[in-house]
Write a protein that binds this DNA or RNA. Structure first.
Lengths: 173, 173
DNA sequence: TCAGACATGTAACAAGTTACATGATTTT
DNA sequence: AAAATCATGTAACTTGTTACATGTCTGA
């Protein structure tokens, strides 16, 4: 899976600018994929050269021009090819879990602070995902529903385990 | 969190070679962090130059020499500084979830195959994590227990949601 | 006899982030 | 008056992977 594949997926049902694509990453998507402008803009340029997408410049008043990209037939074929390729394993990099693993090398009070902040973060995320679900569920595909259910269930399971762990650590103080 | 921080953490309670560090990544750790030899060896070299670790070459017969690294006082201080720094947010990159999100663009049979394979994978991982826990629980710290509990709970929640999703998709066929 | 464990290291390449550069409009 | 939104793009840098290079011993 490359950023090109993900951008093709976003352009499959509608044309978008680079700015809008970034927005989609942040709202719908950030839970399992993300990319910065420094990735998005050069990738769109490369994809246009490859003939996977076409660019249309839209003049706006008061705002900068918008470059709206539309997927081509070749782009659709490339996306289908991606869907037919082997699935890559998930990559997770969690600073929080690394610290937890090495938690014995710092004061219990600090570890407790880590846990409390992490729990608060999980709770904010659960609320955000539930709100996202409420807002978009009417036009979400069945597989997208599984996606968001995975996210919510994960965050709820994290919350539960962290609360249990926190209670145990506090009992040992 | 850099690979240097994680390597320092591993060297905190015992000296190890690069090969052994890689092995630790793969067994204890791969769930939330990993690095290849191409990262480990150059990082160890850099850390030695910085005075964070010292190298001792051990001659072995029948096997290649082993470079065993030991953390220095400066290394311990650097590790403590890492533990005092801000926690970085988790980074997740999941090809599986991206495909699920775009699942409407391919045949339902393919999506069902993705789900079935993913469920089988989660089940293997759950067994592996449980086996790891049984093997190491006697010398695991309380925070390490939280770590492994997070991993197991996550994988079990994924399994549950995927099974539910699979049933729904099959019903719609 | 062949795969896998043991063991280190480099070079080429790929991928992605951050910071910089620019600037009007709208909301707080 | 400041911050956020809208909008694009590049250059320098960081980080990391993959493949190559080398070689023995052990167990299936």
């Amino acid at each position: 899976m490359t950023s090109q594949d993900v951008i093709l997926g976003i352009l499959m049902d509608d044309s978008h600018s680079g700015y809008e694509i970034k927005h989609k990453f942040e709202t719908l998507f950030s839970y399992f994929y993300n990319a910065s402008y420094g990735t998005i803009y050069p990738t769109l340029g490369k994809m246009e050269k490859l003939g996977l997408i076409t660019k249309e410049s839209i003049l706006q008043d008061g705002k900068p021009n918008k470059n709206v990209y539309t997927i081509t037939e070749a782009g659709r074929e490339a996306f289908v090819q991606y869907l037919e390729s082997d699935i890559q394993g998930v990559e997770l990099k969690s600073d929080f879990m690394v610290r937890l693993f090495f938690g014995e090398w710092t004061e219990p009070e600090r570890v407790i602070r880590w846990l409390e902040r992490s729990i608060a973060k999980e709770e904010r995320q659960i609320e955000r995902l539930n709100a996202d679900y409420e807002r978009w569920k009417s036009h979400m595909s069945p597989t997208q529903e599984i996606c968001i259910a995975l996210g919510i269930a994960n965050q709820e399971s994290n919350r539960r385990i962290l609360l249990e762990g926190l209670a145990k650590l506090k009992a040992q103080l």
